[in-house]
Amino acid sequence: MIETTAIVGAGYMGGGIAQVLALAGRRVVLADANAELAAAGRDRIVREAEGHARRRIVPADAPGVIAERVTAAPSIEEAVADVDFIEEAVPEVPEIKRETLARIGASARADALIGTNTSTISIGSLAGAVDRPERFLGVHFSNPAPFVPGVEVIPHQRTDASAVDRVVEMLAECGKVGVPIADVTGFVLNRLQYALFGEAARLVEEGVASPEAIDLIARTTFGFRLPFFGPFAIADIAGLDVYDFCYRSLGAAYPDRFSAPDVLREKVESGELGMKSGRGFLATAPESAPELAAYRDQAYAALSALLHRLGDPPVTY
């Protein structure tokens, strides 16, 4: 079991991860480029927890728990010297990450697991900086770490399988959903996120809609479904033959940007049309439709009520 941890990088992401681990019962040592930055980072996350507690989005005792369980270290080497798990969360600059990971690997226990919170850098490209790279993997939290549940867990070719299992188990104990994926640049989250942003930017460039209109459409239509159903579940429910037809329409209008993925065409050609046929990317049976519709309607109604209570987000266009 992972009981003691260190976070190297006391900024916003590192501090958020420290909060997650501390509130899940872990001891956390926080480090940065110097002792002053580490101490300032620790003080900041306690103040943040006080604000969260006042808004009742964390338990009332969270600030005290974090203050008691998180300590600031004089140096990176002292922070990582005797812990079970280390998460590197320094700026997204390969040279800085490699230098920091080398220091971590040289000072950590031989059995300590080492994670990096990189958003897009291939884990394999960083692994050479780490002593005993079989214990090294990507552990990519999303911002804000205390409140976003999903965490990408990314082994490189030499990562020991047990390291993945131990990290996923630790994340589950922290109330997070650790999802193992393959090591490619951008991973899953950012490949999807930046693909969406790229098409949104093109719509603005083409004069189709304003940024405000696009944001409004995204969060009140397909984005409204995403807390409950991922893209493959949504496609299966709609029908893969419908998706294939829509790709053909989009491809005719925008041949440089849209073409049906081979895997979609193969499923349609084999009669795997989604829920209507009992097999698509998922295997949801047609007779499950009433139960699925009931869940969907209840979920969407609950989300609508929550959004109505919160009001519009305080952004200005």
Results as ranks from 00 to 15, higher is better:
149 P>H: 11
212 E>Q: 15
143 N>P: 06
164 V>A: 03
203 L>S: 07
182 A>I: 04
211 P>R: 14
170 M>T: 05
159 T>E: 04
167 V>P: 03
164 V>M: 01
195 A>G: 15
171 L>K: 03
158 R>T: 13
170 M>P: 01
195 A>E: 09
179 V>G: 06
156 H>M: 02
154 I>N: 04
177 V>W: 12
176 K>S: 05
212 E>P: 08
207 G>Y: 10
142 S>M: 07
223 G>N: 13
191 R>S: 00
131 D>T: 14
138 G>F: 01
174 C>I: 08
166 R>T: 04
151 V>G: 11
143 N>E: 12
132 R>E: 09
196 L>F: 02
158 R>V: 09
168 V>L: 13
165 D>K: 07
171 L>F: 06
186 G>D: 07
181 I>C: 08
205 E>G: 10
157 Q>H: 15
196 L>I: 11
188 V>G: 09
190 N>K: 02
190 N>Y: 03
222 F>R: 05
180 P>V: 06
163 A>K: 05
147 F>W: 08
198 G>V: 04
198 G>Q: 05
140 H>R: 02
189 L>Q: 11
185 T>H: 15
188 V>E: 11
173 E>M: 04
141 F>G: 02
154 I>C: 01
168 V>S: 11
135 R>K: 15
142 S>E: 03
138 G>P: 01
172 A>E: 11
144 P>G: 08
195 A>S: 15
223 G>Q: 08
183 D>E: 11
142 S>Q: 10
199 E>Y: 05
146 P>M: 05
136 F>K: 06
167 V>N: 08
151 V>W: 09
143 N>A: 12
142 S>T: 00
140 H>Y: 13
202 R>T: 11
177 V>S: 15
173 E>D: 14
188 V>S: 09
202 R>I: 10
157 Q>W: 10
146 P>K: 07
